[in-house]
Nucleic acid binder design. Sequence first.
DNA 1: ATGAAAAATCTCTTTTCCGGAATTAAAGCG
DNA 2: CGCTTTAATTCCGGAAAAGAGATTTTTCAT
Lengths: 301, 301
Amino acid sequence: MDLSSIEIFLAVASDRSVTKAAKAVGRVPSNVTTRIQQLEEDLGACLFSRDGKKMTLTREGETFLAYANRLMALALEARQAVRPLAPSGTLRVGTMESTAASRLPAALTQFKQMWPDVSLHLTMGASRDLARDVLADALDCALIARPPKTMREEDLDFDAELKALEMETVFVEDLLIVLPSGHPAIKSAADLRVGSLAALEPGCTYRRIAENWARKSSDLPTSELGSYHAILASVAAGNTAGVMPRSVLDLMHWPTAVQTHQLGPVETLLVYRKDDCPNAFSAFHEVLGATKGRDVRLAAN
Amino acid sequence: MDLSSIEIFLAVASDRSVTKAAKAVGRVPSNVTTRIQQLEEDLGACLFSRDGKKMTLTREGETFLAYANRLMALALEARQAVRPLAPSGTLRVGTMESTAASRLPAALTQFKQMWPDVSLHLTMGASRDLARDVLADALDCALIARPPKTMREEDLDFDAELKALEMETVFVEDLLIVLPSGHPAIKSAADLRVGSLAALEPGCTYRRIAENWARKSSDLPTSELGSYHAILASVAAGNTAGVMPRSVLDLMHWPTAVQTHQLGPVETLLVYRKDDCPNAFSAFHEVLGATKGRDVRLAAN
DNA sequence: ATGAAAAATCTCTTTTCCGGAATTAAAGCG
DNA sequence: CGCTTTAATTCCGGAAAAGAGATTTTTCAT
């Protein structure tokens, strides 16, 4: 029973899927399968019941889940406790709107609790701007979306900036097109029966991915809104299709099951300058690492 | 940071020695060194200060020690919690006098606490007798001393019995000859200035090892006593050399630093029948495994 | 039925881990 | 003060485990 197996177990438990979990922890599905099997063998108990293609926790799995969370939390605490010099001062973190909403709250809460002496400056913005700010030392680090391979070639500037920084995948988001209720399922942008695409600012990677996708088979305009709440409200009003990751949509316990279309997985990177690693950053980095791959809804524990 | 590294760390921390720790966890010293280095690298902190050839915990090491213990305890608890069917009934455990005194109390306490429904029958005896009782299904398992290689060839019966059982090293004892205060240091049994060797019953492996050693250069008689307390009292009275593992001697916080002579390391094995593993045994086995390699004096935590 | 998707299985490559030999450094002893 | 002993570390080769990709099987949806 090593801690990496437990991390994998947590991912599978929250996604109830080997494939998703594999993405979340940055591994290949076959590997996740075997690690879970090893864990079950080692514990001498069945953790998941494989009914069909869903992986649901068994009774034993549920009880183990509680321990797994405590184990990870304790390991993180141990890490932080032996830090030779306690972090202090300020840490300037840049983040996308979506990450700030869905994945950061748990990590930030834990971080503030562990290191109350660090004053955390949170800046919200689009991936491009954030990356630039990190390069220019206006931020210590940032959480940004990595454009998929195909788009990277169209935007060499951004890619070059990224290459100049250290980067690490911390989350994998499932990017969605959210349709008004009653809208028929779509295969491509051509099937859209709306007047516009609702997204955030132009530098937003999600927006650019969506526009890229839409351009292939339609010429919808994009209407720019200031927040995901605004986007979702606008979708509810009809005549607009919203762009947002699934984690954000999940947060906003929307009354009815909405119709969505997947644009595919998008990695969220933590980027920082190669050279300087202020003490507070390493601590933040560790806390973030421990949050990785866990379900947004379980984060409250 | 995986749990096996933590087990190794705990062993080094309690022995304050790489070599001893390596024996305790059944690994080679070079391996222990590298694992500790990896752990320090991973945590970004120095756990031990190598002043000379002693490994002493640093301040960070001390704080990590507390977490390491909690982590292991939690992992054990998790293991036990997912056990599909709760152990119950009776478990018949055989043990040597010495093990019962020094290493078992911590494990038994923990076990009783976790599985109050199991009634634990403890039988004390000499290794040979215990092994036979396990074979004859008069015991479910036993903790016995494994004679060193050279002696095994002289006692093929015992060796054959052992081969018929599953066995696993759980402790490594440092077997000592304890000398009366004021007795000069010795190189071999020829240097002994006492009238007899004080030991337990004839089937006792420690006694046989000691007699074997003594025979090489003297013809001391053995006087048989009923307990280690009796042996030590007899040594204090003078004119006798006692035989016991260091862990037992350590327990009896003896007023003065006694003169001792090392007979070498002796493995303590957990033996059980290959076929049947009652549920309660697996649980006991796990608890024992978690206690492995930790200092007797730290066990109270 | 049929096709798509997901998990499990299998195989191959890579990495890591472990044990032993050689090396270095410190403590004990004459 | 140097020699011996003992312990930790370093280095290296073989073995074991982990990970990635391809393949198969199962299941769900159409």
